[in-house]
Design a protein around this nucleic acid. Structure first.
Lengths: 240, 240
DNA sequence: GGCTAAGCTATTGTTGAACAATCCCACAAG
DNA sequence: CTTGTGGGATTGTTCAACAATAGCTTAGCC
């Protein structure tokens, strides 16, 4: 069955190179990292709403990990801005204020503009991912699956940044979106949050495909301004 | 001696507000945070060169902290990309390759362009900080203090990003520069690294002052391209 | 009544020791 | 020259302990 090849010898198809790419999928850093991912998910889906105090004893018992391991996970979450650490008081799920949201959208503007400017020289796969995200969002809207519309929207904007082809920009955009989800939790309905922007995403990819990067930048800027204001006003209503 | 004022009563000079700004300087999050800062400094100044293995036992004994506390500090450094964590092997001071440097400079281009575009609407203090950094660099060059020229250069570029007025962009630029210092360590002399760029910084602020943002963007782009290539070639020579 | 001060309790900050799992190295065997 | 095989060191994780702190409760006072 198996062919008689020597993996130690350099070969035409780089099987080894491809396997090396999967290395990080297996060698997960261990318990602390996994705990951090679980908490990230629970914060993102609202199970741990902003302001919640993350008791070391309670969480440690619930997850079956020691306090030390839990504290390591907390460090990661603090650096991701998902929780805040108050000395001798504990860690709390972060509560964003309108200033935070405004700043996040300012950064999004910088990042997504950078991606947009690289659209002309972007690889076909990256442009295809952009189109796929928009199409996926429209399909989810047709099916009435508004949470999926939301994730498709974020996938679209992450794909927009990815046009620049910069791993660090990609990673930062991912972090930013995780932080932004804290603000989305304040919105009453996912539909009201994402439906108005479906058509703009479509328009942006169309303008990119037509080579009108400047036009796309204009639509994008209006998108971000409007989304930011929508969330900020919702937060102000909720807070007052 | 002391004046008889009630700090609880709102007063004209906001002494309390200014004190509150210093709160984070005192109420440091504790041992782990301080350990992380010490290690950051030692990595930046080359005392812990890239590739060094950070033994838990040795470092814990040297710093007088427990392994658990040290591991918390490691998490922060991993998130800052200053060290890499290999499962069951330990943490090592990060070794950058030319691809990393190229990516870092791509992000710098995006961030500093963003600051540049905000120059027209930036506050006078921020523009003054920009000028001060350039002048400080020139003074240090006159005194032959090349390490100081280097920090002044980085201060200038951080001030450039700060024109955008975004806390998150500022923080990310700071992180990026900390990472970039890992690459600077591969350069043989601080003078060769920073001297060629003194005049370009001066030129950039002059163009900004003249309102020629587009011209400044051009000089900046050439700056970043040249600096990136200089470091990358030095790394390739060093590695081979 | 409302305010201040002292004390109690629960939680966090940090340490030290313990044990299993894993990696690295040296060495022997084929 | 490659392939097992120990042995030793280091990491991953837990547990138990103690000091320090925050927040609440209660007592005392005007």
């Amino acid at each position: 069955m198996g062919q008689d090849v020597d993996l130690a010898r350099p070969s035409a198809d780089d099987t080894l190179g491809r396997l090396a790419a999967d290395r990080d999928l297996l060698g997960r850093s261990g318990t602390a990292q996994r705990v951090a991912e679980v908490l990230r998910d629970r914060i993102a889906d609202g199970a741990l709403p902003p302001g919640t105090r993350l008791s070391e004893q309670a969480l440690g018992a619930a997850l079956g990990v020691s306090r030390n391991t839990l504290r390591e996970a907390f460090r990661t979450l603090v650096d991701g801005r998902l929780v805040v650490h108050e000395m001798n008081r504990g860690v709390f799920v972060r509560m964003l204020d309108p200033d935070d949201v405004t700043d996040i959208y300012a950064v999004r503007r910088a990042l997504e503009d950078t991606g947009l400017r690289a659209a002309a020289t972007a690889t076909p796969e990256r442009l295809a991912a952009l189109h796929a995200a928009v199409t996926g969002g429209e399909a989810a809207a047709g099916a009435g699956d508004w949470p999926e519309v939301g994730t498709a929207d974020l996938r679209f904007h992450r794909a927009l940044v990815a046009l620049a082809g910069s791993p660090r920009l990609d990673e930062y955009m991912t972090r930013l979106i995780a932080e932004l989800r804290l603000a989305f939790l304040a919105m009453p309905s996912a539909r009201a949050l994402h439906e108005p922007f479906l058509r703009r995403n479509r328009r942006i990819v169309d303008l990119i495909a037509a080579g009108d990067t400047a036009g796309a930048a204009l639509v994008l800027e209006r998108y971000l301004d409007d989304a930011c204001e929508m969330i900020c006003t919702a937060m102000r209503m909720d807070g007052a």
